[in-house]
Simulated scan of single mutants.
Amino acid sequence: MTLITKPINAYLLLWSVLCLSAVQAGELITTPEQPDAASLQYFANHDLRSEAHIARNSFRNPVDTLLFFEVKPKHQVLEIWPARGWYTEILAPYLKENGQLTIAHHRQFQLDEEDGQQRFWARISRDLSERIESYPDYFGAVQQLSFDPPELLQLGQEASYDRVLSFRNAHILDQEGTLLQSLTAFFHVLKPGGILGMVEHRSSRLSDISSTASEGYLDEAYIIRVAESIGFELLDRSEINANPLDTRDHPRGVYNLPPTLAMGSQDSDKYLAIGESDRMTLKFIKPN
């Protein structure tokens, strides 16, 4: 008996050609149920992103980081304090067809505040909102809300999100005395089984009970204890964003390093050679 295989092979060949053509045309074929490394890589290097943002991929490792946090195209994702939208530029198009991105940024109506820091963050938030509105086909329908603890802590309905992502925000929350409140708010809006992904500048560890932290750095064990006190469980940790060249003892802390280079041209070659900060990458789960 002879098996008829040619029609099947022809269909497979046609499907392969169509897939290849779609990818070459920039129309990525995604599977909403699984993290999609190819799509993440495509958006991480997209022409809409500035050269400066793309240049930071080697330090911030967005593809590996988002894969570690198991972000799927179908997910409801909350990004905390996106600032200039470095991760938003990747997450929004990745989620727009099958999921939803919500960004929680600073209050934009503080543009006239006397406090220069409040004006700075308000302007950054407004600029990102305007950029999202300027490229609707790329970003999609990004939902936006204000998050400014301790006054504004409401991030949505209970159990609304599959993922809450916080990139280099914990040290600011800790400095302002709102880290516990903020993590509690994150816990409230995560679905049971949902993941909190955190990336943060990591301080030097001196022993199991002590560390040294110059400006902008936080102790990894400290963040874990605070999160676990709320009810989170540490699911995993990664060295994706580690930088062994970072001694963490700079005069102005993490801000000496790129991209800030707080001391300007003074010792800039030294800090550029170090690169961006050493960072912890932590994955917490809200138990079912």
Rank of each mutant, 00 (worst) to 15 (best):
W86P: 01
V189A: 03
R107N: 13
R131G: 10
T212W: 15
F232I: 05
G26P: 14
L180A: 12
D64P: 04
N98L: 05
G26C: 15
G264N: 02
N169T: 01
V226N: 08
E114L: 08
H75T: 00
T260V: 07
S21W: 14
W121M: 01
T2F: 13
P62A: 10
Q157W: 11
I132G: 01
S39L: 12
L218R: 05
L179K: 02
V77T: 08
E200H: 02
L153R: 03
E233D: 11
P82C: 05
H105T: 12
L179F: 02
H250S: 15
F43L: 09
P93R: 11
V71D: 03
S210C: 07
P259Y: 06
G140D: 10
Q41R: 14
A159Q: 12
A38N: 15
D64E: 15
E233W: 08
V63N: 11
M280A: 10
P251Q: 10
S58F: 07
S182K: 08
D278I: 01
M198Q: 03
I124K: 06
I285N: 06
L261Y: 10
S214R: 13
D112S: 13
S160H: 07
V17P: 05
S229N: 11
R205T: 14
G177Y: 11
A227Q: 08
D236L: 07
K286W: 05
R119N: 00
L206V: 09
E176C: 01
E113V: 04
A37I: 03
I103D: 07
L234G: 05
A38G: 13
P251S: 11
N9D: 12
R119S: 00
I90Q: 09
Y42L: 13
A221E: 13
